[in-house]
Amino acid sequence: MRKTLFIITLACCCLNINAQEFKYYNFKSSCNKDTTEYLYKNFVQQKSYFVNKKLKEFLKYYEKDFEVGTANVGTTSPYIDPEGKEYVSHIDIFWNGYDSWTFLFENHRDWFTTIYITFKSPYTLEEEQFYERIPDGKFTESMKAHLLDYFIIQDIEIYGKYAKK
């Protein structure tokens, strides 16, 4: 029995050590300027590195090659909360800003790739509280994403025409 527990513990430790390694793939040289390939190689194939880490760790690598063009904050359903509240549960990050959405929808839908990050529950920040934290004046989408820096990542997926499943 002790040997079995030792082997299971050793295997778990080896898996955790492997999950902590991250190999960064450069957008221009390693991914041939292919947005979906870049997102897939860095964040989906290696999501075990980011799971259980804060969003700021993800943004540190993402912002090496892209700025956050659009950050859509997602919430839980108000129907599952007894008081009808919505809580921040995930974020969609797009490399392009709102100003280029129309052009992409009309001409290059396959360039429209997003990364979808789900946060660990329990969700504690209400949607209304989140938007109250956004200051008036000039505010970028990157700043909006960074308001969630301390949220813990549960899962990372990409969506787009050529997203690999």
Rank of each mutant, 00 (worst) to 15 (best):
M1N: 11
R2W: 14
K3H: 09
K3A: 10
K3V: 12
K3D: 14
L5W: 10
I7H: 11
A11N: 11
C12T: 13
C12R: 11
C13H: 07
C14P: 08
L15G: 07
L15E: 10
I17Y: 11
A19P: 03
F22V: 01
F22N: 03
K23W: 08
Y24E: 00
Y24R: 01
K28N: 14
K28Q: 14
S29K: 14
S30H: 15
C31L: 04
N32T: 09
N32K: 14
T36Y: 04
E37L: 15
E37Q: 14
L39R: 02
V44P: 02
F50G: 05
V51A: 11
K53Q: 07
K54E: 13
K54I: 08
L55R: 04
K56C: 09
E57N: 06
F58C: 04
L59W: 01
Y61T: 07
Y61A: 07
Y62E: 01
E63W: 03
D65W: 07
F66K: 03
F66W: 01
F66G: 01
E67I: 14
T70I: 11
A71C: 03
N72F: 08
G74F: 09
G74A: 11
G74W: 10
T75N: 15
T76N: 03
S77W: 08
P78Q: 01
P78S: 03
Y79G: 15
D81P: 00
G84F: 03
K85C: 02
E86N: 08
Y87H: 02
Y87T: 02
V88Y: 02
S89A: 11
I91A: 04
D92Q: 07
I93S: 06
F94P: 01
W95E: 03
W95V: 04
G97S: 05
Y98C: 09
D99L: 12
T102E: 15
F103L: 10
L104Y: 07
E106D: 15
H108K: 14
H108V: 13
R109A: 14
R109W: 13
W111N: 15
W111L: 15
F112A: 15
T113A: 13
I115L: 00
I115F: 00
I115K: 06
Y116L: 09
I117G: 01
T118M: 12
P122V: 05
P122A: 01
Y123H: 12
Y123S: 04
L125Q: 10
E127P: 07
F130L: 05
Y131D: 04
I134S: 02
G137Q: 05
S142E: 11
K144M: 00
H146Y: 05
L147E: 00
L147Y: 05
L148R: 00
L148D: 02
D149F: 05
D149M: 03
I152M: 09
I152E: 12
I156N: 04
E157M: 13
I158F: 01
G160S: 01
G160D: 00
G160A: 01
K161R: 12
K161V: 10
Y162W: 08
A163S: 07
K164T: 06
K164F: 03
K164V: 08
